[in-house]
Design a protein around this nucleic acid. Structure first.
Lengths: 344, 344
DNA sequence: CTAAAATACTAAATCGTTTTAGCTTAAAAA
DNA sequence: TTTTTAAGCTAAAACGATTTAGTATTTTAG
C-alpha cells in the first residue's frame, strides 16, 4: 500500500510497472500493435489497469486533445414538456455515442443565451445544439466562423447558412386550420405570442393562408411572451373571448398558451367547452384524457432528436472542414381528437 | 494581426505584454495587490485582457485546481414533469452560484446509475445530486468515503448517513387518504408500483396507516415498474377495477400511474369519472382544467431545489471536512380539487 | 561481416492554467 | 557602509494526459 494518490494516473502506473508513461498511454489508447509494444508488456499494463480500476482523467485528456466529448443542448426552458422530452431522447443517443450533454435554458432571452454560449466555450464543449433566442444571429455566425459545430433546432435564422432541424410550421398550421374548417368551424381564432421567430411566423402564416384559401375571417390574439404563464395572460384571453363572442374555434400555437386557454374556457366559458373547436400545437399525454380529448399538432420528437444528433455527429467528425449545411425540415402530425370534430 | 492562435492564453498575453505568465495569472485572479503587482502593470494587463476579450480555459483551470465547477443532477427521467421542473429551478440556482449542472436520467436502473457516476467521476465533477436507483447504496457510500459531495433527493438509504432532501411521504400519503375518507369514500384503492424504495414505501405505509386508523379495508394494486407507461400497465389497472367493482376511490402514488389510471377510467369506466374519488401524487397544471379537476399531493419543488442546492453548496465549500449529514424532510401540500370531494 | 531495417520502447514537449519558491533592485535600518 | 526589509516581478513545477521524434537493440539483407 504505497503512495496511493499517485496510483490513479498514467504516471503512477508507469512507475509501478517500470515502463514509460508513453508506453502506458499507447496501450490505453489501443495503439499497442501499431506502436509495436510487445504482447507481454501490453498484457502486464492491461492487467494492472484492470486490477486498480484505472480510468483516465477526462479533463487532462480534453485539455491535451482539445475535445471534451460534451455537447450543449440549449433550449428555451427545460421544464417545458416539449423540450424535456426532446432532451431525454437526445441524452440517450449522445451517451450511446460517448458524449455527455449539458442542458440549459435560455428563456428565449438573448443576454442569457450569449452568456451561456461564452460560458460553455470556456469549457471547450465540442458542439452546440441550440433553440436560439431571437437576437443571437451574430453569435451563431461567429461560432460557425470559429468552426465550432452548431445545429439550430425548432427555429432558425433564414439569413444564415447554419445546419438546423425544424418542422414545417406553416404547413402544420395550415393543415390544422384546414381540418377545423372542414369540420365546419368558420370563425377560427389564432392565439399566439409576440415572438417574431421563424417557428411562430410560420404558424401564423399557415393560419392566414388557410383562412384566405377558404375566405374566412382571421382573428388573431397576440400575447406578450412575458405573460405566457401569468394571470395577465389569462385575462387577456378571457377578454379576447368576450370581445369575440362569435368565435367557434381556437387554435393555440404553443403548449403553454393552450394550458392557459383551456383554463380560461373551463373557468369562464364552461359551456363553450363542447361547442368550440380546439386545436393546439404540441401534444401532451393528458390531452387524450381531457374532456373533450384535445386535437394537437404533434411534433416528431424522436425524429427531431435523431436528426439533430445525426447532424451534430457529422459536424463533430470533421469540424474543420467546410460542408454544405443540412437544413432538415420534418413534418408534424395532426392528431385528431374530439375537440376539433364537427359539433352538434 | 499576429499569430492568432496563441493570443488566447495567458502565455500569449504574457508574451505580448512582456511580462511573465505568473504576473498575468495573479492579476487575473485578483491577487494583484496581495502579490504586489504594480498598479501600472495591473492596469496594462487588465486593459489588454479586455481588449482581446480573453477568457480563461476552464479545462486547464480545472485540471490544475481539481475543481470543475460542474455538479451532476441525476434523476430517474428528465422528461418526467416532476424532475424537469426540479431541474429547471436547480439550474437557475447553480448558474447563479457559478456552477454548471449536468443532468442525466438513470431510469431507476442500477447499472445505468453506476455507469453514469463513474463517467462523471472521470470528468472530475465537483458534486452529485442523485435520485438514487435502489441498489447503489455501496457506490454512494464509496463516494462519501472519497469525500466527494453527494446529496440524495426524493428517496434515500436509511442505513446510510448521507445528506438528503426528501418529503414526508408517509404523512403526505396519510393526509391524502384521510382527506378521501373524510369526504365519505370508504373503499379506497392504492395504485402503486413494485418499487421498494423509501419514497414508495412511505406512501404505502401512509395509506395503510390511514386505512387502519379508520378501520377501512385496504386494496392495493402493485404494478411492475417496467409497465409504468405501457399498454400492459393500463390493462392491469382495467382488470383491477373490474375485479373490484365496489371501489369508490383511487389514490395514485406517482404521476405516470395517474396518467394511465385516468386514461383507463375515461376509456373503460366513463361513468365512474364523476363518482370516484381520485387523488394523485405530483401535481400538474393540467389537473386544474381536467373534468373533474384532480386533487393532488403537490411536492414543494422550489423548496426542494433550494435545500438541495444549499446542502450541496455547503458540502462544496468544505468537501474534505467531516460534517453531520443534513437530512431534510419537507412537507408536501394536498391541493384539494373536485375529484376528491364528497359525491352526489 | 557490415549496413539497413525492424522491433520495442522512451524522453520530452505540449495543452493552459496555478502556485511555490525565488531573484533583483531599491529603500530603510543599523 | 553594510545589512535588512520590502517591492515587484519571474522560473519552473505541477495537474494528467497525448504525441513527436527519437534511441538502443536485434534481425535481416547484401
Amino acid at each position: 500500500m504505497k503512495n496511493k494518490s499517485k496510483r490513479n494516473s498514467i504516471k503512477g502506473i508507469a512507475a509501478e510497472l517500470g515502463v514509460s508513461v508513453t508506453t502506458v498511454s499507447f496501450v490505453l489508447n489501443g495503439k499497442a500493435k501499431e506502436k509495436r509494444i510487445s504482447e507481454a508488456v501490453t498484457k502486464k499494463i492491461l492487467d494492472y489497469i484492470e486490477l486498480i480500476g484505472y480510468r483516465p482523467n477526462q479533463l487532462a485528456q480534453s485539455l491535451r486533445t482539445g475535445k471534451s466529448k460534451i455537447i450543449v443542448f440549449m433550449v428555451e426552458d427545460i421544464s417545458n414538456h416539449f423540450f424535456s422530452r426532446l432532451a431525454r431522447i437526445i441524452e440517450d443517443i449522445a451517451y450511446q455515442k460517448g458524449y455527455k450533454v449539458l442542458f440549459c435554458s435560455n428563456e428565449n432571452d438573448d443576454k442569457k443565451s450569449l452568456e451561456l454560449i461564452d460560458l460553455f466555450k470556456e469549457r471547450q464543449v465540442d458542439g452546440f445544439m441550440i433553440v436560439p433566442s431571437p437576437g443571437i444571429q451574430d453569435k451563431i455566425a461567429a461560432l460557425k466562423a470559429e468552426k465550432i459545430p452548431v445545429v439550430l433546432c425548432d427555429r432558425y435564422f433564414p439569413d444564415l447558412d447554419i445546419d438546423h432541424v425544424i418542422i414545417d410550421n406553416e404547413k402544420a398550421s395550415y393543415c390544422a386550420c384546414e381540418h377545423l374548417i372542414k369540420n365546419n368551424f368558420k370563425n377560427i381564432a389564432l392565439i399566439t405570442t409576440d415572438v417574431r421567430q421563424t417557428q411562430m411566423l410560420g404558424r401564423l402564416e399557415g393560419y392566414k393562408k388557410a383562412m384566405a384559401a377558404y375566405q374566412l375571417p382571421t382573428n388573431v390574439l397576440i400575447l406578450p411572451y412575458k405573460e405566457k404563464t401569468t394571470l395577465q395572460g389569462k385575462e387577456s384571453i378571457t377578454k379576447f373571448f368576450y370581445e369575440n363572442p362569435d368565435l367557434d374555434a381556437a387554435f393555440f400555437t404553443t403548449n403553454y398558451l393552450t394550458k392557459n386557454g383551456l383554463a380560461v374556457i373551463k373557468e369562464s366559458f364552461p359551456n363553450a367547452l363542447n361547442k368550440m373547436g380546439i386545436v393546439t400545437f404540441d401534444d401532451n399525454e393528458l390531452f387524450t384524457i381531457y374532456t373533450p380529448t384535445i386535437t394537437a399538432v404533434s411534433q416528431p420528437l424522436e425524429e427531431m432528436a435523431k436528426e439533430l444528433m445525426k447532424t451534430m455527429l457529422a459536424l463533430l467528425k470533421n469540424p474543420k472542414v467546410a460542408h454544405p449545411p443540412k437544413k432538415i425540415v420534418l413534418k408534424a402530425k395532426l392528431v385528431v381528437r374530439e375537440s376539433s370534430k364537427v359539433k352538434e
